[in-house]
């Protein structure tokens, strides 16, 4: 039995609620491309399918621990306490956005809620997370830093350089490698040596002589146990660990890249759109982490069907308000663009 067996019913309900919020939020982002074309610009990357991994990881946090995700970053601030309205408003390019319209979907930041920044460049945020952990070590803040990145990032130089240096310096950081099997549009079996050999990606940890584990990222309790062990190891001064969390993203890499005024939307997942593999996608959907956790909580008596429905309804109501707020919020003034260049 892992540490998750001691989670209170309230915490378990909180975890289900957060997973549900992420899913509903991402659904609303996706629908926006259809219902309000042009409101979201550029490239948005959704975290549907990652809910158990995100929430299972963040449920292990202590109060001041920091979180540094990749550009697929909508879910984390929702769990950390950032207003969902401010996150959606940012994605909708509004002045009321969490970054006042300066960052958008790929660059969410809310240091007041322990998310300093998210880098839009693959893998680079891994180094920033280790840096925040170095500051925690020098200043003895007791913080652990959670670094989230995709399987594609694990082929970047930043990954190798940073994990080596974090291991040498015994930095209090947990590296969560979110393996969703696709590096943007490319299947992992086409680009990852471990995957091609049939080995887990957590094997990369052996190169740095640090612990590396692979966990079912569709089960928040299994994620909790693995990440909790890594976080406690980091907190006790023993250094970093690599946790490979395996799940499937239900949306494609991002909305289709189009040149204005051609409208953009989310297409089918690459499994279908590129590789014609409907069976793979159907199997992943049958393994939906939210449905599974909902059934688990009802099965173990933590929630009744009515409780679960009440949570689902309240999440939908919240996201109705979130979209309304973001749509009605003002755009920034053009000349606001000259702010924040220098501190």
């Amino acid at each position: 039995m892992g540490a998750s067996s001691e989670l209170s019913n309230d915490k378990l309900k909180w975890m289900y609620t957060q997973m549900s919020r992420i899913r509903e939020f991402e659904e609303r982002v996706k629908r926006t491309f259809v219902e309000h074309p042009g409101v979201i610009r550029g490239h948005a990357h959704l975290g549907d399918g990652a809910e158990a991994s995100i929430v299972g990881s963040l449920a292990t946090r202590h109060e001041n621990d920091l979180v540094m995700p990749s550009y697929r970053c909508h879910g984390y601030p929702l769990v950390l306490g950032t207003s969902a309205k401010a996150v959606m408003a940012e994605i909708y390019q509004r002045k009321t956005g969490v970054c006042k319209g300066f960052g958008g979907s790929m660059h969410l930041a809310d240091p007041a809620h322990h998310l300093p920044t998210a880098s839009g460049i693959i893998g680079q945020g891994i180094a920033h997370a280790a840096g925040a952990a170095y500051a925690a070590q020098v200043k003895k803040t007791g913080q652990v830093v959670y670094s989230f990145f995709g399987d594609g990032s694990s082929k970047q130089g930043a990954f190798y350089e940073t994990l080596n240096m974090a291991a040498v310096w015994k930095l209090p950081v947990v590296f969560v490698l979110e393996n969703n099997e696709y590096q943007a549009y490319t299947h992992i079996k086409l680009e990852d040596a471990n995957a091609i050999a049939g080995d887990p990606l957590s094997q990369k940890a052996e190169a740095f002589s640090i612990p590396g584990v692979t966990v079912d990222g569709t089960d928040p309790l299994k994620v909790y146990d693995a990440v909790n062990e890594a976080a406690e190891r980091a907190r006790s001064g023993k250094g970093p660990s690599l946790v490979e969390s395996k799940f499937y993203r239900f949306s494609p890499h991002g909305n289709a890249i189009t040149v204005p005024p051609v409208p953009t939307q989310f297409q089918e997942h690459e499994a279908i759109e590129v590789y014609g593999n409907k069976a793979e996608f159907a199997a992943a959907q049958a393994n939906d982490p939210i449905k599974k956790f909902r059934a688990h909580l009802i099965g173990t008596g933590v929630l009744t069907e009515a409780d679960a429905k009440k949570i689902d309804d309240s999440v939908r109501a919240e996201m109705d308000e979130v979209v309304k707020f973001a749509l009605e919020s003002p755009l920034p003034a053009p000349e606001d663009a000259l702010n924040y260049v220098y501190a």
Binding site: M68, A127, H128, G131, A132, Y134, A135, E161, T162, V168
Partner: peptide
């Protein structure tokens, strides 16, 4: 040795770590 350190030949990590450390209260 907390404030003065040797690094591997890893410029991305060296500067990336400086950026993250700067955001969490150091001046590297």
């Amino acid at each position: 040795k907390d404030r003065v350190r040797i690094t591997p030949i890893s410029e991305t990590a060296e500067m990336g770590i400086a950026i993250g450390a700067a955001m969490n209260g150091l001046r590297p």
